[in-house]
Amino acid sequence: MNIFRLIGDLSHLASIFILLHKIQTTRSCRGISFKTQALYVTVFATRYLDLIFGEFVSVYNVIMKLFFLGSSCYILYLMKMKYKPTNDPSIDTFRLEYLLGPCTVLALIFNFSFTPVEILWSFSIFLEAVAILPQLFMLQRTGEAEAITTHYLAALGAYRALYIPNWIYRYYTEGSWDPIAVLAGLVQTGLYLDFFYIYVTKVLQGQKFELPA
């Protein structure tokens, strides 16, 4: 554990609390892509199989994994059941097969061993890298977002961005690196650059999040 990893994980936790807070206080999941949230459940379910099949890492690791699995399922429940009328599938139109197909192929090619658990682990890493695309696509379509939604996205983007210095630190202290996680993580962070730019230049200056026409 190093400071970058810890702050990254806390940022990930914060993003989920911000999202839950947004849904509960506005009693609405407007502006949130159900597809992206469903992809996160898929990511966690396929990656955290190691809770059952893998080796025990730490109590911290187990608790965080259970939290991410539980909270992401709860968010789906809120969107599909409790606040269903506020969820508008007609603007959430990104085609999931464009993500699931390539991630499946990549996972079959790039993995640490050709076993179901390792293939699913790779799949989860690749899918996480692009899982935000339906959400960003939705943002692009509507052209604006509530401030709280942008705080959620910023915290979520910061999480993987902070993993990058964590990997550099671990490379120097442990002497090894994980090419699959690192390359996918760089792509994942890269997808947020546009968003971060507008977030910093507009939302943090107190303006509304609006995409240039």
């Binding site: 990893r5 390792e118 994980d178």
Partner: peptide, 10 residues
């Protein structure tokens, strides 16, 4: 196979 790094990240 490449040597498998520990999957301890979340």
């Amino acid at each position: 196979d490449v040597q498998k790094p520990e999957h301890d990240e979340l």
